[in-house]
Design a binder for these strands. Structure first.
Lengths: 192, 192
DNA sequence: ATCTGTAAATTGAACGTTCATTCGGTTGCA
DNA sequence: TGCAACCGAATGAACGTTCAATTTACAGAT
């Protein structure tokens, strides 16, 4: 269950995400995951020793996805301010286009499961280290004010998470104008 | 189960919050709530028709608490900027000093229960209307920039929620310096 | 003060359902 | 021939909910 996920396992992951978004952890029995994924219960237990383990592996899977989406191919040629905007935009875009993953991660963070995933720190579902490193780089290059980096990360990621939720719950329309407004608020707050 | 909560019901609420913070919704059986609250299971069912109803009433109870804490006695004599800072500070202070309520509200918002509480809108656990009204007042009095109020609310509340979590998870020490940094980031971002 | 009737509060054993997990058997492939 | 993938009925524990029985609270009558 490590490096490569087979199609079957990805299928189980996909359906588990959809079910958990709809019914929550406790409202999603293994039998239902099996039925929706078109496999037998025994097959799931062939790959995962328990439901808890399935959830933990799924968490790891989601985390890799979001981190890759946000930080892969982040062009170093762009100005820091442009990168700052792109990271925020990608964060929101990912959450809004992958509501089942977003919902799962939010549920996970606020559940006792979270204590079991002590391998890495995290903010708003994505690796804390990546964000912190990115913000520290901005401070070193005199693009960002030199304040506590965790405080800055709270404002940066917290705003993006809540913005995404507002879009998902239809309180905000997801368009360039609103996104630019959000980015401007945060950028004005943290720029050097 | 409407206006006034008896001591017994508050006792049940308190222990339910503590258990849910520790074990989550599904990890908290009614039998455990009864035992910790020193009442029989039947007594709980005398006051609440079901576990779901207990959760919903508890949610309403928590919401009243946090809203009263944040918006009661908010002096109109102070400048808008000072009120802006106080609301943010009270929000964080409440969450940090009531981690069981905070944890419960976060779990609630990201669970299927949330769909059942359609009575009012909410952001980060507190009534959305109060926050929106407060921010709109700031725009009318030319203290805040005139941008989409929901986008601004995302930045305002989202930053506070994530900041509080960072404090609770010991990534940030809760002191005046860090709080002032957070307030300054947001204020710089939204001030006129 | 004492008694009495009644409704509300409280109790917890028992019930029925749901669900995670097991395991003995089958299939497919190297 | 052997091993991994796959199957799903059976198991047993956990849990939400019920309800008949008991206690408490108290208003009105004596």
């Amino acid at each position: 269950m490590n490096v490569q996920f087979t199609d079957k396992i990805e299928c189980i992951f996909k359906h588990t995400l959809a079910l958990i978004k709809e019914n929550g952890f406790h409202g999603t029995p293994m039998s239902m995951i099996a039925k929706n994924s078109d496999v037998a219960i025994g097959t799931i237990y062939h790959y995962f020793p328990s439901k808890e383990n399935l959830i933990l592996e799924l968490f790891s899977y989601c985390r890799k996805k979001i981190n890759a989406f946000i930080f892969d191919d982040l062009s170093e040629d762009l100005s820091y301010q442009e990168q700052f905007a792109i990271v925020l935009e990608r964060f929101c875009k990912f959450q809004i286009n992958n509501t089942d993953i977003f919902s799962f991660l939010e549920q996970f963070h606020n559940s006792p499961f979270n204590d079991l995933a002590h391998d890495r720190q995290k903010v708003g579902g994505c690796d804390e280290n990546n964000v912190i490193t990115f913000l520290l780089k901005g401070m070193e290059t005199n693009n960002l004010r030199k304040i506590d980096v965790h405080v800055m990360a709270s404002a940066y990621i917290g705003a993006a998470v809540t913005f995404s939720k507002s879009v998902i719950y239809k309180k905000i329309k997801y368009d360039k104008k609103h996104l630019d407004e959000l980015i401007e608020i945060i950028w004005n707050g943290v720029k050097q």
